[in-house]
């Protein structure tokens, strides 16, 4: 049954995303694209784009939106509940022990141990996103003749604005969206 599968998939995504919303991306990619085949690479990037440009936690946005894509309104609700449920359980357990013992050093240590792997995982999901945006394909090796020059300029502009002027993600998305609407409509 699709709803149970959705609930289980998103429960797993919520349970394993250590380090906030971006940590959920590689899990969403692995589970929804590769394991279940529910969405395509292109849809994954659309999910991410729309989650970035709307308010609220990114992982919740992504869950509601992709749940909707996969199985309608109820699918969106189920996916959102699924991704939230592990937090509801684990956070309260941690809080209970914290208020009892006021000691979270070991938990923090394990999480810090996870962080390097999480960065690597986000980088790997980032590579998929980068390749799709620049070459229209997600796997290496790429054919250099398929490079989208407009896209690479937008990308460079985005990185430049964020690093040099601390531009926020939402501004970068809006700017590249407007530029895309103009430039791609002309050429």
């Amino acid at each position: 049954m699709i709803y149970l599968n959705l609930l289980f998939s998103f429960f797993q995504i919520g349970l394993l995303s250590f380090g906030g919303g971006y940590a959920a991306l590689p899990l969403i990619e692995q589970e929804l694209i590769h394991n279940q085949g529910w969405i395509t690479n292109q849809q994954f990037i659309d999910v991410l784009t729309l989650s970035e440009m709307t308010p609220g936690p990114i992982a919740i946005n992504a869950a509601t939106f992709s749940g909707n894509q996969i199985a309608g309104v109820l699918g969106g609700v189920v996916a959102t509940v699924g991704v939230t449920l592990p937090s509801v359980i684990i956070v309260q357990l941690l809080a209970y022990f914290y208020f009892k013992y006021k000691n979270i050093e070991i938990v923090q240590g394990i999480i810090q141990g996870l962080r390097p792997a999480v960065v690597a995982l986000i980088a790997s999901a980032g590579l998929t996103i980068f390749l799709t945006a620049m070459f229209g394909q997600s796997d290496l090796p790429v054919d250099l003749s398929t490079l989208n020059y407009v896209s690479i300029i937008f990308f460079a502009l985005g990185v430049f604005l964020m690093r040099k002027f601390k531009a926020s993600p939402i501004h970068v998305i809006i700017l590249t969206g407007i530029l895309g609407g103009i430039v791609y409509s002309i050429i």
């Binding site: 960065v119 980032g126 980068f130 945006a133 937008f154 985005g158 990185v159 590249t176 530029l179 430039v183």
Partner: peptide, 25 residues
């Protein structure tokens, strides 16, 4: 036009993720 806007945004999202990875790394 929506398609063109989203195509532009793709590059922006790629930039955001690369920036996130850079900062975390």
């Amino acid at each position: 036009i929506v398609n063109n806007v989203l195509l532009g945004m793709q590059a922006g999202v790629a930039a955001i993720i690369v920036n996130v990875v850079y900062n975390m790394g």
